[in-house]
Amino acid sequence: MAATPNRPLLEIDNLSTHYVSAQGTRVVRAVDDVSLRISAGETLGIVGESGSGKSTLALSILRVLPPAAQIVSGQMWFENEDLVRKTDTEMRHVRGKRIAMILQDPMASLNPLFTIGNQVGEPIRVHEGTRRAAAWRRACDLLKAVRIPSPETRVTQFPHEMSGGMRQRIVGAIGIACEPRLLIADEPTTSLDLTIQAQYLSLLRDLQREHGLALIFITHNLGIVAKMCDQLVVMYAGRVVESGPVSRIFNAPAHPYTKALLNSIPRMTDNRNRLTAIEGQPPDLSSLPRGCSFAARCPAAFDRCHKETPPEFNLEGGRTARCWLASVAMQSGAA
């Protein structure tokens, strides 16, 4: 793995992305005061349940948000440039070239009307000004790189002629087409079956190694996090509730939500008949309760949790947690 430089490749500070309704009366805090960093060659896992803001965070990084959403505050330093302050045209030169993203649904993310070669070659044509024929040859090589058999025929085919696993590898090929520094994969394996999933993950790892990519891996599968990631960010209700190196968090989670997530993984050796689930529902992001947003579901909550929102405490070993208990038990210095 590449040596970590002084400044991380991407450093997000206090980023907030909100969805505002047409009348401006309802504000959904999809991403709220999120900070994270990732260095070159590193893999960062982002976990959290559906609706916790993972995908909005990823789309915020590339600033491809739906019309109703906007970044309201924060900074995103990528290779010493603040992505938040870039113009749309400048941002366009970042997308697909320096930061690429793989979407979660391989069946829907390819355009049904264009050939694979056309779609894989597109970022190369746009970012490097390559001619159609040359881009086509590069597309061929890229398909080979993502281990698609007989790429020469595949480039001439249409998406409906391929299986889900193959399409997702093609989406991966589009991701690495311009050799980006950072690849964001948003639940890229959710719709694939287990064998194909394993193949795809090892493919991503190989690509990462060969190209020195930094990888942000968005998932709700903690097993994949354990296998793939160096660093972990746990999101709940739009906020980062815990972050740090994967092994440390798995050994001793600091936030009760992380603990509950780890407990809810079914184990073969478990003798209990029932699966463990976290009681209750996540809060409505447009009307967050006072205090900690997890307090209502937290078995360890006490008075203060319902009154005051815990800040992000810095713990030892490069970890953070938003929990009053963590501040007492593991804090190395006030945040």
Partner: peptide
């Protein structure tokens, strides 16, 4: 659609996204 989102994520200019990927469909 997701493929228009992907077209944007590729860094294609707005005219390509709308004129090629969206328009034809």
């Amino acid at each position: 659609s997701e493929y228009v989102k992907l077209a944007r994520l590729k860094g294609l200019p707005q005219s390509w996204v709308i004129g090629k990927h969206a328009f034809k469909n």
